[in-house]
Design a protein around this nucleic acid. Structure first.
Lengths: 231, 231
DNA sequence: TATAAATGGTTCTATTTTGTAACAAAACAG
DNA sequence: CTGTTTTGTTACAAAATAGAACCATTTATA
């Protein structure tokens, strides 16, 4: 299993990333300053390092350079908007990609996958596909079908459906969805989610699907519910 | 399988080249300074060496000359724009070809193939052909047909169509296409991709092809989509 | 060298998607 | 049953994105 070293001084961020990394099938290890990164890096073998730029002890740039002296391990830098991208991707740093804060976890994981695939082409391309009854979703190809019929969804609709189905039965509050799909400190209105849900439902309802639905849980949020009420 | 020794002090570059080499069916080995090249060269048998000119320890020229004293192995030099070409191709160096940075991976691999073919005429070349329904593409002959009808495409159009079909169903962002087909740090405008797609579509649309299309995936990029929506 | 073809970039416009506000409807609590 | 909270819906505004037309530059070709 791929180990991922996640470094950010903000505990919330490492927690969120760690959670998503687990979900994607990685094994996350979190640290909170530059020295710890180097320490862990020396002790263990990681498939990928997510590196915040602003960290105590040693900043991300320095850490990245240190690592690059001895290793080719894929590194994705995490940076606040405004810090200079050139430098990150530049030759002297040698990161593989970067992500701008505030990010949406779903986006981060997409990048992680992309970089891992890029670095190791032989890597088994695990298509991110989900299916429930007559419903199938391929996240990478942006393809959704009900009973083999193609359903055209927009990006956000796709992401919502994916998230709900991927956590089938779990209730997502609107804020939950906002932070997962829009970014962890997105300032937007929670009515926005309702709208997307509505549009999504409208499109899905063009095709009959008696075996599942996007259910409103009053006072709490939404969830994907299948006919056979699972735990 | 052909082993290729890739030498560049920039890790990103060796990574990218290595990735594409793997895709093309070669077995890449990467090193990052001149001494390592010579060391590896003595230890192992390579079908080809890609040699960056500017490297620590020993530069590409020197390394190339060293190797040429004892071997005829095909060598392609990689050089930043402005470094003198005359010298590279000159008799005293004896490289087989050279590539100017920033290069596009697809171009580099084309050169590698070309040099290998030139050096070893008996080499069994696997024709790079793709087909989907009424569409056929032969990358090496720049031959595209729809229903047996020849479609005249320019190089870029051909490359785009090839890339999309070769990864049928996969969505390519514009940046994705730019770095794959134009070069890893091509600074160009992503509208440029739109233009080529537009021209490509215009040419393709002269011939009916109801079973496939180049589809725009809004907010994400383009993809080749066949009639039977594959996952 | 002259000419045509290919390529890359700019700008404008059309389209699609997304977000917001206001209000109607439904669910709930007492 | 009634008032309150939550959710759904509608309509519209704003933002993002794609496409078309066009021109400039480069490259290939006769």
């Amino acid at each position: 299993m791929d180990k991922i070293l996640i470094a950010d001084d903000n505990l919330q961020i490492t927690k969120i990333l760690s959670e998503f990394a687990k979900k994607e099938g990685y094994e996350p290890v979190t640290v909170h300053n530059g020295d710890e990164v180097l320490e862990l890096f020396r002790q263990d073998q990681f498939s990928m390092i997510l590196l915040d730029v602003m960290m105590p002890k040693k900043d991300g740039f320095e850490v990245c350079r240190e690592i690059r002296k001895v290793s080719n391990v894929p590194i994705i830098m995490i940076t606040a908007r405004g810090e200079d991208f050139e430098r990150i991707m530049g030759l002297d740093i040698g990161a593989d990609d970067y992500i701008v804060k505030p990010f949406s976890p779903i986006e981060v994981m997409a990048r992680v996958r992309a970089v891992l695939r890029r670095v190791d082409v032989s890597r088994q391309e695990t298509q991110r596909c989900l299916a429930y009854g007559s419903l199938t979703i391929s996240l990478d190809n942006a393809l959704v079908t009900i009973d083999g019929q193609r359903v055209a969804l927009t990006k956000k609709e796709l992401e919502i459906l994916w998230t709900l189905l991927d956590n089938r039965g779990k209730i997502f509050s609107r804020d939950n969805l906002l932070s997962t799909l829009w970014g962890y400190d997105y300032p937007g209105d929670s009515r926005t989610v309702d709208n997307h849900i509505k549009r999504l439902r409208a499109k899905l309802d063009k095709f009959p699907h008696p075996d599942w639905q996007i259910k409103t849980v009053w006072g709490m949020g939404y969830k994907f519910e299948g006919a056979q009420h699972e735990v």
